[in-house]
Design a protein around this nucleic acid. Sequence first.
DNA 1: GCTACAATAAACTGGTTAGTTAATTAATCA
DNA 2: TGATTAATTAACTAACCAGTTTATTGTAGC
Lengths: 112, 112
Amino acid sequence: MIQDPQLDDTFAALANGTRRAILARLAKGQASVNELAEPFDMSLPAISKHIKVLENAGLIERGRDAQFRPCNLNAAPLREVSNWAEQYRHIWEDRFDRMDTVLQQLKEETNE
Amino acid sequence: MIQDPQLDDTFAALANGTRRAILARLAKGQASVNELAEPFDMSLPAISKHIKVLENAGLIERGRDAQFRPCNLNAAPLREVSNWAEQYRHIWEDRFDRMDTVLQQLKEETNE
DNA sequence: GCTACAATAAACTGGTTAGTTAATTAATCA
DNA sequence: TGATTAATTAACTAACCAGTTTATTGTAGC
C-alpha cells in the first residue's frame, strides 16, 4: 500500500506548476497540444514532454483528430491522491483539538 | 494558486515510497532517525537525506533530546494536497454521468 | 506530389536526486 | 579525558529532469 509506484508517478507528475496548470486547463475540457502550450512562455517540445509525463502517470488520455492529438483529463489517479491524503486528515484536524485542549487548560489556570 | 512552489515541494517529497513510509510511521508518533531507518535496507545517511527532504517540505518538525533528533509529523501541508485534489472530485465522479450520456446517445443512434 | 500545420523525436546542457562509503560533529557516560 | 552512540556532512557516482534547438513524422488540402 505504501510502496506504490503508481502513486510515485502521480505525485511526481503533480510536483510541477506547469503540469498542474495543464490539468487545470483540461478540467475545462479537451484541448490540443498547441492550445495547451499557448499560455506558457516555453517551447512546444517542452510542453509535449510535460504532456507525456502526465500521460505516463495516467492523468491524460489522448485521441487522434486529423493532425491533432486531443488531450483529455483522467482524474482517476487524483482520487487515489485524495484517498491517500485523507488517511492523515485526523492528524491535521487533531492539531486544533490539541489547541482547544491547550486553550482550555489556559482558561482553567487563569480562573484559579 | 497554480504556480505554488510550496505545493511543488510537497508533491515532490511525496513522490517516493520510502518517504511516504516514514510519514506513515510518524503518524503513529514521534521517532528518532535510527528508529525511522530500522525497517529499510538502506544506509543511515540515505534516510537522513529523506528526512531532510520531508523537513524542507514542512512535513516534519524536529527537536533535540540528548543525542537524539526526534521527528514529528506536521500534516498541515497534506491538507493543502487534499484541498488541491478535491478541486477535481466532481470530474472523477462525473465520469459515470458522462458514461451515461454516451450510452444514451448510442441507444438513440441505434434506434434511428 | 508539394505545401502547411500539428506534434514528436533526437541530441544536447545544466541542475537535481537517490544512493554509496568515509569522515565529522555533538552529546552522554564511565 | 576517552569511548560510545546518534546523526550529519563531504565527496562521489549513476540516473533523471526541465529546458533548449534542430530535424523528422504524420495528416490534410490544393
